[in-house]
Design a protein around this nucleic acid. Structure first.
Length: 971
RNA sequence: GGUCGUUUAGCUCAGUUGGUUAGAGCGUCACAUUGACAUUGUGAAGGUCAGUGGUUCGAAUCCACUAACGACCACCA
């Protein structure tokens, strides 16, 4: 036992780093650490969690802080409960985000085109360097938050082990036919030169124009569009099969001149139920190459035997292609739009233009408006049936035919995964219902390269590759080239070059084999291998032979994080960790990544393991600023968690994020709130300081091994009962993820019961060192998950050994809640003190001035006698008599009558006013209770216990009212 | 357009299956302060629970509608 005084105020920065280091070096974060008391537990459970890996692009923000705080509460609570607990840390390579950040940085440093200048390998080195630095920063910041993560198990979404998991998954899914290459309309970011998935689109509402027109004199059907420039690639007109244009279905119109003289459109009229006959013109111009919906119609028609043309008029450079016509080729989309509108107007085809609001999909990462265009990409088929290999799922067994969609649906429906709050179930199901195939390939470099390899020793394949690289230009007649070369208003130099390269490659490379494989790879590296037909999927690089080159595309970052719950545990190896800790117990994350991540983890885990990835999903809300706005750099309203930690300590920062919010709802945070909790940490510190002093003064023993002592007084009984209650509440609320309620209850106990009452009573009663030691010991354990640092420091100050974080969390014991002593302290005594204090304030009696009073009671007479000294101190009395003081201010609490001697200072009017006012509040209450109880239907219908308690309320209130009236009469 | 959420004290929010005289923290006002703590103590003021209607013996809580705000989803050309 140390015998020194604690400093007057708690200074977090003095202790926090050292404490964290001690925990970490002590190995307490690892599940392997087993304190002795754990061995005594009968049924030891497992508790596992993965940390949603922060991106290696930035630094810790409040979003991370709230996630770390909540998860750390869970981890510490379960560890202290005795569960074999693991919480796995890691970071996310965040593919596009990281790559574009580094690219931007290099450009700022003066490089014009970093990727071209450095090449894939060198560029990736730069990205790795950045990612490493960023990783180190964020990981240390997580330590600052006090997170009890098992760093020995740290993972990275792009490390070797995770790559093995990703490749294995890819191969499995490919072999099952769930991953396929397909030529389909995808979302293309011109700025980013990459595709993105549907979920990565951010819809922005902006004003647009709706153009009504006819294609030409040859066709009677009018259509409307917001994107006239794409109409250069229209190949069909869709109408409702029962609608006004139904007689036209099957007809084909050749428009001789559209957009320019000589540009021909072949339009087939097709039927589609999704066309709303009552909307607009009742007809829809179909552009299969530049609209996902149109593309689907095109596929549907094709499947039913109707062939429609397919024309791509916008290229990956965001410019019009040759197929848009010679007058349009090379133009930017916006320019082409203006041009065709003018043309339509001049041709007399434009009927009207309406102003509308339209939702355009923009790329989350690059910010530009996404261009739908056709491209060969890798997809995950969510609707294809396959045979489930193994299953621990409720609804399906191994060998069952399922789809990914069905798997994702069933586990939430059957309750195998519980989502908290429940309402997100609906959102989840809705998302699944509308789920399309997931585009998983990206044309960026930072990420898991797709483990598909193209055999370029195959001549046909190689030529196909080259063919693609040069685009359509390769196959066009010379007249087109001449037309292009003749133009001077565009920069065609690169296209001219391309043409030359094209011929040289085709002849020299493939025919004469004068260029080495290395050269060929170099030439093709970075291009899209769309046209290649022969490829194989390999898990291990070693299995790949010389003549194969790897698909240059990388996987969507969410593909790798989707396997996070099991790839971090060692899958595809069947490790001990995997056996013990999967499925993980809880996934705690923000509701904003329910689709991106949570749903995809469910997909991967149920598919690969036939097992849910986690049993519970707990979703927290966003942290907003004081005014409810999102925190952002541009608004300058960011509250930096590290700054809060520096100013107020980690514990205060954590509390401000844990208390005052509800699951799934956004919370507002202000610096004041953090400061408020700093005050509370200090309060706890000072409570401890007092208790430690008290124990020392009484020459008591500070022992960390304690069981509940026997109560000596009513106050002891009372506080032990309250403590027992709060232990029960903590356990229930923490188990049901009610962090805020649990924290509030514990704060109430700590401040309003322990500090305000019990410690004050203890000062008078004395001789409580054993009890005080027990209470503080228990209290520190209860608080530890919320405020690990201050509690640990106090623990060290008290016991100087071991660590609080590996102590046993308190459990309740059987204890009476309503003995006479408990009731007396809880209601009677405390109310008497408060009323005396109130009267003192009302009569403006200085706090230092002692007063006299008389007190009489039948039921509590002995307790009153016992607590007279305490009462004297807490209420500032100098004498307490048993006989009634004449002409004092009086009140009755339960059956206790108190008369305060104000030495004739009684202001009769004031007193009458006070009592009248109280009567005015009690009277209507009595009336309402009487009314309620005289209502036969209430007495008949309400449960007896309710009626009983109402009766008691009435009796009490009536008694009170009577007392008040008597008092009033006395004046 | 669809779905969901929010609306309770000046501010931030609790209020778990309908049964309290509707709570907390912050803020406000008044008073206090050498004795664990001014990062404090004591007391007080402050709400017709967004509105309307309904179900019920009983509604902040359940239902319907309305209004404001917010989020997510969406192919209406």
């Amino acid at each position: 036992m140390t015998n020194r005084e604690l400093p007057k105020a708690y200074e977090p920065s003095r202790y926090e780093d050292a404490i964290y280091t001690r925990w970490e070096t002590g190995g307490f974060f690892a599940p392997e650490h087993t304190p002795a008391w754990v061995h005594a537990l009968k049924n030891r459970e497992y508790f596992s969690m993965v940390l949603p890996p922060p991106n290696v692009t930035g630094t810790l923000h409040m979003g991370h802080a709230v996630m770390l705080a909540i998860q750390d509460v869970l981890a510490r609570y379960h560890r202290m409960k005795g569960d074999c607990t693991v919480w796995i840390p890691g970071t996310d390579h965040a593919a596009v985000a990281t790559e574009s950040k580094v690219e931007k940085k290099l450009i700022e440093q003066g490089m014009a085109q970093p990727k071209t200048e450095l090449g894939r390998e060198k560029f990736l080195e730069e990205v790795e360097k950045f990612a490493q630095a960023s990783h180190d920063t964020i990981v240390n910041q997580a330590r600052k938050m006090g997170a009890s993560l098992d760093w020995t198990r740290e993972a990275y979404t792009l490390d070797e082990a995770r790559n093995m998991a990703v490749n294995t998954l890819f191969k499995m899914m490919y072999d099952d036919g769930l991953i396929y290459r397909g030529y389909r309309v995808i979302n293309w970011s011109v700025t980013g030169q990459s595709t993105c998935s549907d979920d990565e689109l951010v819809y922005v509402e902006r004003p647009g124009k709706l153009y009504y027109f006819t294609y030409g004199p040859e066709c009677p059907i009018r259509i409307a569009t917001t994107r006239p420039e794409t109409k250069l690639g229209d190949t069909a007109i869709a109408v409702n099969p029962e609608g006004r244009w139904k007689d036209y279905i099957g007809k084909e119109y050749i428009i001789k001149n559209f957009g320019q003289t000589g540009h021909e459109l072949k339009l087939k009229v097709i039927a589609d139920e999704n066309v709303d006959d009552s909307f607009g013109t009742g007809a829809l111009g179909v552009t299969p190459a530049h609209s996902q919906i149109d593309f689907e119609m095109y596929q549907k028609q094709k499947a039913s035997g109707v062939n429609i043309d397919f024309v791509q008029v916008i290229g990956e450079d965001g410019k019009m292609t040759l197929d848009a016509g010679l007058e349009y080729v090379g133009m930017l989309v916006e320019d082409a739009r203006k041009k065709i509108v003018t043309w339509l107007e001049n041709a007399g085809l434009l009927e009207k233009v309406e102003e509308t609001m339209q939702n355009v999909g923009t790329s989350d990462r690059f910010g530009d408006v996404v261009e739908p265009l056709p491209k060969t990409q890798w997809f995950i088929d969510v609707n294809r049936e396959f045979t489930l290999k193994n299953s621990k799922l409720k609804q399906f067994k191994a060998g069952d035919t399922v789809t990914l969609k069905k798997l994702m649906q069933s586990v939430v429906k059957t309750g195998e995964i519980e989502i908290i709050p429940e309402r997100f179930d609906k959102t989840y199901f809705h998302w699944i219902d509308n789920l399309r195939d997931w585009n998983i390939s990206r044309q960026i470099w930072y990420g898991h390269q797709i483990p598909a390899y193209y055999d370029i020793s195959d001549k046909e394949n190689a030529q196909a590759l080259l063919h693609f690289k040069e685009g359509k230009i390769f196959n066009l007649p010379d007249s087109y080239f001449q037309a292009i070369d003749n133009r001077t208003d565009h920069n065609w130099g690169s296209i001219g070059n391309l043409r030359w390269i094209n011929f040289s490659l085709a002849t020299t490379l493939v025919e004469n084999k004068t260029i080495t494989w290395a050269d060929l790879k170099k030439e093709l590296f970075g291009s899209n291998l769309t046209s290649a037909k022969k490829y194989k999927v390999f898990v291990n690089k070693e299995d790949v032979s010389q003549s194969f080159i790897k698909d240059p595309d990388t996987l969507d970052t969410w593909f790798s994080s989707a396997s996070w719950t099991f790839s971090t545990l060692g899958w595809p190896e069947n490790t001990d960790d995997l056996k013990k800790f999967h499925p993980t117990s809880v996934l705690e994350t923000g509701y904003d990544i329910l689709f991106f991540w949570v749903a995809r983890m469910i997909l991967m885990s149920t598919y690969a393991l036939g097992e849910v990835p986690f049993k519970t999903v707990y979703l927290h809300g966003l942290v907003r600023d004081e005014q409810g706005r999102k925190m952002s750099k541009s608004l300058g309203n960011i509250i930096d968690p590290l700054q809060m930690i520096e100013r107020y300590g980690t514990d205060a920062t954590r509390l401000s994020l844990l208390i005052g919010g509800t699951p799934g709802n956004d919370m507002r945070l202000s610096e004041d709130k953090v400061a408020g909790f700093r005050n509370f940490t200090n309060k706890l510190w000072n409570i401890s300081r007092f208790i430690v002093l008290q124990i020392q003064n009484e020459q008591g023993v500070m022992s960390k091994d304690v069981s509940a002592p026997v109560a000596q007084t009513a106050a002891d009984e009372w506080i032990l009962s309250k403590l027992n209650t709060v232990i029960a509440q903590m356990n229930t609320h923490l188990t049901s993820y009610q962090f805020s309620i649990a924290g509030e209850l514990l704060r109430d106990f700590t401040w309003n019961e322990l500090a305000d009452w019990y410690l004050e009573i203890a000062k008078v009663e004395g001789g409580k060192h054993t009890l005080l030691n027990y209470i503080l010991n228990t209290l520190l354990k209860l608080w530890h998950p919320y405020m690990p640092f201050v509690t640990e420091q106090i623990w060290q100050e008290m016991y100087g050994e071991g660590s609080l974080m590996v102590e046993h969390y308190p459990i309740t014991e059987k204890r009476k809640k309503d003995t006479a002593g408990i009731v007396f302290i809880d209601t009677v005594f405390r109310n008497i003190v408060m009323k005396i204090r109130a009267i003192r304030t009302e009569y403006k009696i200085e706090p230092s001035k002692k007063i006299a009073l008389s007190i009489t009671s039948k039921e509590y007479s002995s307790l009153i006698t016992e607590y007279t000294p305490v009462l004297m101190r807490l209420a500032g009395l100098d004498s307490v008599n048993e006989h009634t003081i004449e002409g004092g201010v009086s009140f009755v609490e339960s059956d206790v009558e108190v008369v305060i001697d104000l030495s004739n200072a009684i202001d009769t009017e004031k007193e009458i006013a006070r009592i009248t006012k109280e009567i005015a509040t009690v009277e209507p209450y009595v009336v309402s209770l009487q009314k309620k109880l005289s209502n036969a239907s209430f007495v008949d219908n309400a449960p007896p216990s309710v009626v009983e308690s109402e009766r008691k309320k009435l009796a009490d209130a009536e008694q009170k009212l009577e007392n008040l009236r008597t008092q009033l009469q006395n004046f």
